[in-house]
Design a binder for these strands. Structure first.
Length: 587
DNA sequence: ATCGTAGGCGCC
DNA sequence: AAAGGGCGCCTACGAT
């Protein structure tokens, strides 16, 4: 006779306490709504069946309140239901997220992680189709209830979902997650700065859980306002396909009307557009907006084309279809991931990270609420100062505008200094900033040396590492076909990529530490993070708590700097404002 | 038909 | 000022 539903949360708490699990100690967990939940500690598991998802969440909540362990799970399949239960998990370890940190890249899966951690070849990964070849008549000891096959790979029918078929399986799955995390800890120990690497693994895991919450939470959007903006750009919602076609043709005609007789032009085909421009004596290598900008006065069709492109963007990407697909109940929702495949920035779909400025008036706080918005000032050069330890650059970070002291030192205009610093971090070497770049090399040799070292590694095809220990893979274009020019271009591109990745990646790590501190503190103010945008946070807060939230954002930044910054002396700044709609942000 | 790629553009 | 880095998403197009 099992425990009754009512006392199971207490039972689970006691079970952990009896095994000396306390605050911050690892506890493996796997859950499947409708099936149950399992906890795993060093050598034991507690598997509880339950068809009541509410009961399972109650159990987690009780453990979180009483013990606050570090929850160790494989991936979002366990994190998502916990986030749906609105449980404020404080500490976690997401095996897939830590794998991305250790291995680099984004594409991965549980069987790949398992194989990699055990030194098994990815080529020998079993596919779903062949599962019975061994299973039915296979060797002795090939037990389908054992998730690990005799060849030490994970059983594909488990990793593709079978892990949640029974409480017993959940128990084994939670145990494996715990095992995987222990192997990951050993690999983190081998990083040049193990303490920092472990810290990054924890903060990146927390950021992944934040992403699970962001996916559910959504960004408040006033749908009526959004419709007004869209209608303004591309007209009213088309009634049917024919109407849509008619509106499209009308937009096209605004541009094509500038042309004399000749062959038909498809404005959506760049080659066609290029040929069209040549007909009016505008010769460009490509038709990108910044290039057309310089020919704005050469022929009226250029202006018309640029306007057409803006409207086309709204019509195709941020139009009625986007609204119908991604905005529901006044919230814009997309999928969030805590690290991209390159340097580790957060990503979001549904346009959350690239909403055009014209659409931002539609992002409005709900009744009784405001947005407390904060963005980090000049974060990348400040991070460069921190990771390189360049004393002169660290000194410059004391200024609110760090480009000013740099300009003074280089004896150039402030904007020239800015371009030079950005160019150094992005790998630009040409143009007017080239002189200033040499000035940077003389005056900030440590910082510039740091960038050059990363670039050299990239050019050689070597992976680079962020200060937090993330491996950044030089994955692209390794085909060698004897084309010297092409090889040189690829090497140069890798150099630029590596140069930027160490800074962009470190800034992403710092940003995430800031974000998870804000997340943890926002709860007490009844506030929630609703958007993370590389150096910007938007917190949706009850109006009454806005001032406290604004202050909290500054305090969280100080704490993030304390926790993350490799240099104690670098100054980080944030601009914080309380606004009702996103467009009120001073850019 | 379905897929991947390229050109383009939005944001940081 | 130059056209350097990242992402997601659109369309057209060519290969399969």
């Amino acid at each position: 006779m099992g425990p009754t539903a009512a006392n199971r949360p207490e039972l689970a708490v006691r079970w952990l306490a009896d095994r000396s699990i306390g605050r911050g100690d690892d506890t493996g967990v796997a859950l499947r709504p409708g099936i149950g939940i399992a906890l795993a500690v060093a050598n034991e598991t507690l598997a509880l069946g339950s068809d009541d998802p509410g009961e399972v969440l109650e159990l987690i909540r009780a453990i979180e309140v009483e013990i606050q362990p570090r929850w160790v799970w494989w991936d979002r399949s366990t994190a998502d239901p916990i986030a749906r239960g609105a449980i404020e998990i404080a500490r976690c370890w997401d095996v897939l997220t830590v794998h991305r940190l250790l291995h680099g890249g984004w594409r991965t899966s549980i069987p790949i992680v398992w194989a990699w951690l055990h030194g098994l070849s990815i080529d020998s990964l079993p596919a779903m189709g062949q599962l019975d070849l061994l299973g039915a008549h296979g060797d002795e000891g090939d037990d389908p209830e054992n998730p690990v096959r005799p060849d030490r790979h994970l059983r594909p029918e488990w990793s593709s979902g079978g892990w949640g078929d029974s409480p017993q399986r959940l128990g084994r799955w939670a145990t494996l997650a715990l095992e995987a995390s222990q192997l990951q800890r050993r690999l983190l120990d081998e990083r040049p700065d193990p303490g920092r690497a472990h810290s990054t693994a924890r903060s990146e895991s927390a950021a992944e859980f934040l992403c699970a919450e962001l996916t559910l939470e959504g960004l408040p959007v006033d749908e009526g306002e959004a419709v007004r903006i869209i209608a303004d750009a591309v007209g009213p919602r088309p009634t049917d396909e024919a109407d849509a076609e008619r509106l499209r043709a009308r937009r096209d005609a605004e541009v094509l009307g500038h042309l004399g007789p000749g062959p038909g032009v498809d404005l959506r085909n760049p080659a066609d557009v290029k040929a069209m421009l040549r007909r009016v004596a505008v010769d460009v290598p490509d038709t990108r907006a910044w290039r057309l900008e310089q020919h704005r006065n050469d022929h009226p069709i250029v202006e018309a084309l640029l306007t057409w492109r803006k409207a086309e963007r709204i019509a195709t990407t941020y139009g009625y279809r986007w609204l119908d697909e991604h905005v529901h109940g006044g919230r814009l929702r997309g999928e969030w991931t805590s690290s991209d495949g390159a340097a580790g920035r957060m990503t979001a779909s549904a346009g959350l990270h690239n909403l055009p400025a014209e659409m931002r008036p539609a992002v409005v706080a709900e009744t009784g609420h405001v947005f407390v918005r904060a963005d980090l000032g000049q974060i990348e050069p400040r991070v460069l100062a921190a990771v390189s330890g360049d004393e002169a650059l660290i000194a410059a970070t004391q200024d609110d505008d760090l480009y000013q002291p740099i300009a003074t030192r280089l004896r150039v205009e402030r904007d020239i200094a800015k371009v030079a610093v950005l160019g150094a971090m992005y790998g630009s070497t040409t143009g007017e900033s080239a002189n200033a770049l040499r000035g940077l090399e003389r005056n900030y040799p440590t910082a510039m040396g740091h960038l050059e070292q990363a670039a050299a590694a990239g050019r050689a095809g070597d992976d680079v590492f962020t200060v937090g220990g993330r491996r950044v893979r030089m994955w692209f274009d390794d085909s060698i076909d004897g084309d010297i020019d092409r090889a040189r271009r690829v090497a140069a591109a890798r150099g630029r990529f590596a140069r930027n990745a160490t800074i962009q990646g470190a800034a992403a790590e710092f940003f995430k530490v800031w974000a998870i501190i804000v997340r943890a503190r926002a709860a007490a103010l009844d506030a929630r993070i609703v958007l993370c945008l590389h150096d910007e946070l938007i917190v949706h807060s009850p109006r009454a708590n806005a001032e406290q939230a604004a202050e909290m954002l500054h305090e969280a930044l100080a704490e993030a700097a304390y926790r993350w910054s490799p240099s104690r002396d670098v100054r980080y700044i944030a601009d914080v404002s309380v606004i009702e709609r996103w467009s009120q942000a001073k850019g």
